[in-house]
Design a protein around this nucleic acid. Structure first.
Length: 224
DNA sequence: GCGACAG
DNA sequence: ATCTTGTCGC
């Protein structure tokens, strides 16, 4: 069971959303602050009815081994448009719904989207982690912000991503000769640990098993 | 003004 | 994110 310690506040418009991000970002911790990690959750969000419905899926895996412990799905009406930089206001509500359905309490959550890799350093993973006061990591499938040195081609290769003079995350090659993923801190997990956990949750695919299975669960409506 | 732009 | 089949490549 995972419940928010901070109530989710829904902004009326983009301007209010940005102001809220500026306020909440002050409370994010980029330091490791967790105990033994034995249960890792992966969450993913998708849409139905031409975008009118938001759907979230969560899969909890054991560490080590990545055995599936449990999973859940939730749906609700979409209440915020997609605006780059304001993604969390579109996905957080249904993510809180689905996480509340868990009977176990994962020690760490891997999100489908960025955390600290964000114009105001408050991406989806940061927002979710702060509301739950739980360790979170952001894992994005495509580039959003920042620059980085050339990346090697071997699985495990990575390079820091910087933006306005600050290291905000890392581009990680999770599989040899396959497109990289973008990893960043959400809340209570430092970048080095974030990369370590993402690698620990990965096997033979581009994405870590957590997000990969959550994505499959979401698209196949409950079938793993 | 122009181009970029997580999901 | 979603609309969509076969096809090139390891």
């Amino acid at each position: 069971m995972l419940r928010p310690v901070l109530e989710y506040r829904h902004p009326e418009n983009a301007k209010a959303a940005i102001a809220l991000q500026e306020e909440l970002r002050q409370q994010i911790s980029l330091q490791d602050d967790f105990g033994d990690v034995q249960l890792v959750a992966g969450v993913d969000v998708g849409f139905e009815d031409q975008g009118a419905t938001v759907r979230a899926a969560v899969v909890v895996l054991q560490l080590p081994g990545l055995a599936v412990v449990e999973s859940a799905i939730a749906r609700r009406p979409t209440a915020f448009p997609y605006i780059p930089g304001l993604l969390s206001f579109r996905e957080i509500p249904v993510l809180l719904d689905v996480l509340a359905k868990l009977k176990t309490t994962p020690d760490l959550i891997l999100c489908d989207g960025n955390g600290y890799i964000h114009p105001r350093r408050f991406g989806l993973a940061c927002h979710l982690g702060l509301l739950l006061d739980h360790p979170t990591i952001g894992v994005a499938k495509s580039r959003f912000l920042g620059e980085h040195p050339a990346l090697g081609e071997v699985a495990g290769d990575w390079q820091p991503i910087t933006h306005q003079g600050e290291t905000i995350g890392a581009i990680v090659r999770n599989r040899t000769n396959v497109r990289p993923i973008y990893v960043s801190s959400g809340h209570r997990v430092g970048l080095a640990s974030a990369i370590k956990f993402v690698r620990q949750c990965s096997t033979k695919y581009r994405l870590p098993e957590t997000t990969r299975l959550a994505d499959r669960l979401s698209k196949q409506d409950g079938v793993l």
